[in-house]
């Protein structure tokens, strides 16, 4: 597809006989927000795990800007510019809010990060900026485990935001947020997209999907059933029936 930054072709994964993902094709187009929609167990998170290298596909290809990334380790894929969040957030609970974000800017395993004090100051500056944007500056010294639910959601977003990754894969990033926090979250995401970030999000809240997504890919039982503009997908009675759990034919 023209403008495709991330391309998935024929991706399949089976877990002990359960076909979690079956021959899925998908393109993430630069600057476009794609929502993955489908009932629980549709394979949405598995698709993220396959793209990011957390699990290996049985078949298929994943390309980032034309470069095959299937088989690469997760940290290599992350360094190539794909950032992801987790449904259960997976914050570094015993670390401070600041260290959670700062850590995202320190990928090297060496005892000292490269670039000396100037680079360290730049990393800290970026961290403070990310905390400011997500409204967490006042909590920079607090431990992640002590944050409220909404604060943890924004911390998860701050860790991604600071990486300046080209592609964000967000797994239910706004679930459980109150209306005010949700509005802040949507505004932040729109800012990022306006700055050129390509977003793919898994979301059950169809209001957020409608507000943010340019395209929807509908998954069910590991298969991509449809892809298109939100208005078309969300008006399809068969898909809506599947989504809301009506008996299938």
């Amino acid at each position: 597809m023209p403008g495709s930054l991330l391309s998935v072709r024929g991706l399949s994964k089976e877990f002990g006989g359960v076909k979690a993902i079956q021959s899925v094709d998908m393109d993430l187009v630069e600057g476009v927000v794609t929502a993955l929609v489908g009932p629980n167990g549709a394979g949405k998170t598995t698709l993220f795990n396959l793209i990011c290298g957390h699990i290996s596909p049985d078949a298929g290809e994943v390309q980032l800007a034309g470069r095959p990334i299937r088989g690469e380790r997760p940290h290599t894929i992350a360094r190539l510019g794909i950032a992801r969040s987790f449904q259960d957030l997976r914050l570094f609970g015993r670390m401070s809010v600041r260290d959670n974000v700062l850590s995202a800017l320190e990928p090297t395993a060496w005892l000292w990060q490269p670039g000396g004090r100037r680079a360290a100051r730049a990393r800290l500056h970026k961290t403070e900026a990310a905390l400011e944007r997500t409204g967490l500056s006042a909590l920079a010294g607090a431990r992640a485990v002590d944050l409220s639910y909404a604060e943890t959601k924004f911390l998860s977003l701050a860790r991604i935001l600071v990486t300046e990754a080209r592609i964000w894969l967000l797994d239910e990033p706004a679930s459980g947020l109150d209306p005010v926090s949700r509005a802040r979250f949507v505004a932040l995401l729109k800012e990022a997209v306006a700055a050129g970030v390509t977003v793919c999000l898994i979301e059950h809240n169809l209001d957020i999907v409608t507000e943010l997504a340019d395209r929807i890919a509908f998954l069910d039982r590991g298969r991509k059933l449809a892809e298109g503009e939100p208005a078309a997908i969300l008006r399809d009675p068969e898909l809506i029936g599947i989504y809301f759990g009506e008996p299938r034919r």
Partner: peptide, 11 residues
């Protein structure tokens, strides 16, 4: 605290 999240952040 979270090995998979650390990997996802490039560690």
């Amino acid at each position: 605290d979270s090995e998979s999240a650390a990997e996802a952040l490039g560690k």
